[in-house]
């Protein structure tokens, strides 16, 4: 880009030259304009997919992948859980998860606050078996203020808090909330 040294105009001592427009700049401009037109025509006039369409496709894809993964994991039973809950170090993991996610509603000592006391033998949901506890943690009781944790926590983490909760059965913390639900045998 050599400077065209001809003075074109002058204002307050500022001299204006009149060099040609840089070619690469002009091409950038043209190409963006052409792309813009094609893009608009494709998506707004020629029936290109809308954002909602894209979401549907992506959700379907996700469901498919999910289905293929779930098939391979073994069925949960009370026995398989018993084994899983016995893993080393699981209670420490559970205690930590409980403190950060559950204590706000169930109290630091599980004594009950907004949610029920989790150390007594009384259960609103099920009878306090491992399967029951896992189920209520996963599905929650959204109408009653217990959030569903299935979508938020990983399987191992849910196992860990459940194991932690069951390990606190009968710990009789101070300020425990009065029993709610049915007494388990």
């Amino acid at each position: 880009m050599s400077d065209n040294n001809e003075k074109f105009h002058e204002y307050d001592g500022i001299i204006e030259h009149d060099n040609p427009l840089p070619t690469w700049w002009l091409w950038t401009f043209f190409l963006t304009i052409i792309f813009a037109f094609l893009y608009y025509i494709h998506y707004q006039l020629a029936g290109g997919g809308t954002l909602q369409d894209e979401l549907k496709v992506a959700m379907a894809q996700l469901e498919k992948e999910k289905a293929s993964v779930v098939d391979t994991s073994p069925m949960e039973t009370e026995d398989s859980l018993k084994e899983a809950f016995g893993k080393d170090g699981i209670l420490a993991v559970g205690a930590q998860a409980f403190a950060s996610k559950c204590a706000a509603c169930h109290g630091q000592e599980l004594q009950g606050l907004i949610g029920p006391n989790l150390t007594d033998k009384f259960w609103i949901h099920g009878k306090g078996t491992r399967m029951d506890v896992i189920a209520v943690i996963r599905n929650g009781a959204p109408d009653k203020g217990m959030p569903p944790w299935g979508p938020v926590m990983k399987k191992d983490e849910i196992y860990a808090v459940a194991a932690f909760i069951l390990s606190k059965q009968g710990s009789n913390p101070a300020g425990a909330k009065p029993p709610q639900g049915e007494e388990a045998p």
Binding site: I14, E16, D18, L21, F29
Partner: peptide
Amino acid sequence: YYYVPKAANRPVYSYRLSIVHFWS
């Protein structure tokens, strides 16, 4: 467009470019 050519005491590169880029 005022202070750069003033401070550098240099001519403004292209009047044509000014027109095209201003309006666009």
